[in-house]
Design a protein around this nucleic acid. Structure first.
Lengths: 197, 197
DNA sequence: TCCAAAATGGCAGTTAGTGCCATAATGCAA
DNA sequence: TTGCATTATGGCACTAACTGCCATTTTGGA
């Protein structure tokens, strides 16, 4: 990586950091792009070259972890059993969430207070789920139209989503890994009721 | 309902309809609020009294169905088995979707082309899922912290989501009810792989 | 017929986001 | 080291989404 890219990466991080600080102290809506740009000592026009929208300044922090988890799914050899490959993905989310607990909690709190941020987050999760489903489908090699891979991916994502929510609601005090394993057990054992006519 | 409210309801519908027309012909981003207001023969300021944001003008169409489905869950007697109550909810989505197939397809196509709309939709689904989970939890009367109701609700929502996507991808030609029952069967029979260490 | 309440919409203002272009910084090659 | 081509920067002008405020109009009912 050249010196140029390094410096830009640093600027990017600085902008995100300053934005985060201002958002947490003043609230998302009461912080303007100008303020953030000023705090990071760049022009507003430059800020927009690093982050396309105001929301991206927060979403960014979760995006990193989700992208990493997708990578760790892709990193599994193609002949890994699907259940194991999916667990690698789950594992990745668990570690990145708990290792950055404070930041994640703050981001979620911020999102809870701001509809537009909330929406962007939902969109991010949704896109991530799509991407995971695509990867699972590729591995599964079933007939097109088979819903099994989509369901497997979606179910896994839902477990993660539910567990992260529970974890956030506990203020980060719950044990995330235990939560996830409990949830997976419930699903596997059929204790979770499924809609029936 | 008074005559006044009736007229307002009509205005609301007219605005939404004109917005929909303009969005489908010109695209979401290339349509301005002014154009929509002009088409509906109201002032822009008035339009904003009916719809808080531009995105709400589309989201509206799906919102109606999701709200209705939630109502049909609430309408079930409290002693209905959870699996049956959840099926009533599923049933509601199936009928409202297929009965408004054309409109739903158009809306989804529009959303697929516009990130901000996409995000709003994800947010809507997410909020709906939360609301359903709350209702399921209420019915379940388990200990607080029990993840079973959240999982039951989330799993059902995910089935609906996956099926609707498949249905949309088929251009509305697939049989939605068959799709849903197939998916529910797969889940119930344990054919869908669950992440395992 | 008149009145109180409520809907409407015009106006001014804020802010997010974009295109364009001049300027400044930087890596590289001579 | 110097000069050049490339690339980041940021200023300016502009569009369009939204908001608060207030005057005007409409409307349902007494």
């Amino acid at each position: 990586m050249g010196l140029r890219e390094l410096k830009m990466e640093r600027t990017r991080a600085l902008i995100a950091e300053k934005a985060f600080e201002l958002f947490t102290t003043q609230g998302f809506e009461h912080t303007t792009i100008e303020q953030i740009a000023a705090a990071a000592e760049v022009g507003p026009r430059t800020l927009y070259r690093y982050f396309p929208t105001k929301e991206a300044l927060i979403v960014n922090f979760v995006d990193i972890h989700l992208t990493a988890s997708l990578d760790s799914l892709r990193a599994q050899p193609d002949d890994t059993p699907l259940a194991s490959a999916l667990y690698a993905l789950v594992e990745s989310v668990i570690t990145s969430t708990t290792e950055n607990a404070e930041r994640v909690l703050a981001v979620y709190e911020l999102a809870a207070r701001t509809p537009s941020v909330q929406a962007q987050f939902s969109g991010l999760w949704s896109a991530w789920r799509e991407a995971c489903a695509a990867e699972v489908t590729r591995r599964h090699r079933g007939k097109p139209g088979d819903m099994c891979p989509s369901l497997a991916a979606a179910t896994t994502m839902v477990v993660i989503d539910v567990c992260v929510r529970h974890w956030v609601e506990s203020g980060g005090r719950a044990n995330m890994r235990r939560l996830v394993n409990k949830a997976l057990d419930l699903l596997r054992s059929g204790e979770v009721p499924i809609a029936t006519p």
